[in-house]
Amino acid sequence: MYSQGLIGADGSSDETPEFLEAFQKRIDAEEKIEPNDPMPAGYRRTLVRQIGQHAHSEIVGMLPEGNFITRAPSLKRKAALLAKVQDEGGHGLYLYSAAETLGVSREQMTDELLSGKAKYSSIFNYPTLSWADMGAIGWLVDGAAIMNQIALCRCSYGPYARAMIRVCKEESFHQRQGYEIMIELCRGTPAQKQMAQDALNRIWWPSIMMFGPHDGDSAHSEQSMKWKIKRFSNDALRRKFIDATVPQAEYLGLTMPDPDLRWDEDKQSYEHGPIDWTEFWNVVKGHGIMNVDRIKARQKAHDDGAWVREAALAHAAKRNARKEAAE
């Protein structure tokens, strides 16, 4: 799950105008760009950054939901949550592989995540505080991610677009699963319903911030659109998400935590109240309540696992040496 709308394209280029024009022609003709095709350096850099951030988001995204695996309130929910978190890890693996087709290694990308050079989606810097968060994350966070990722299935870079097709199928399943958790809570005891409302109150605003800054404040979006890495603007996707989600909240009998939210008859769409961008930028800059803990958890897993990775390499080398000696 990932969407941040923050990635600006790197349009700087040493290529000749003829090369850039020929490349743009392929893009305009909706041809897929494949790993061995010539491409502008900026296009490659933009994709490495975007796919890397997407992969990191999946990996860090395992932590907030992983927080409830050992506490899931029924065995059915425990199994479903485990499978879901495993799916997120699988998406990470896919995406690292897609990025590797552009000439960057998983190790390099991991180092950049741990050093803070590479970012991941800010939504994962909020804590999960109740079982209802497992429902609300699936419903809202995966829901928001799907809006973005459906468009990425048509991204001009072939390996990324193809990875997104499977990822979207799984995310769509996660979204329905999350909503089903919310339905069960809202049909349940007053305490369960209160838990569901509280989760919506906390997760709603961060989830609509996932689409990134308003179009007018979104740097370099234009180049990404031109290269067809990005297909829709941040605000267009956000609007689509809100329009789909408000009726779902009504069905649950929950109150949207936005007193200014209203239906605009002319636009046939919802207008939302002002977004607290100060909070958004604070979290992006590392001041979310969980930023430090998330990276520390990834760093600890990396450090604690170093001897295992070294042993696997050492064993493979020994086995090869023995095989060669026997031949």
């Binding site: 395992m62 992983g66 050992t70 059915k76 978190v85 495993q86 890890g89 998983r106 696992g305």
Partner: peptide, 29 residues
């Protein structure tokens, strides 16, 4: 085994351990 999920030495094991855990929880159910 599920306690490892998200904290394994390599990503492949972050996927393998929930799998094993799911096998056992499925049998238990």
């Amino acid at each position: 085994v599920s306690e490892w999920c998200g904290h394994a030495p390599i990503l492949e094991e972050d996927l393998a351990m929930p799998n094993m855990s799911l096998d056992m929880i499925g049998t238990a159910r």
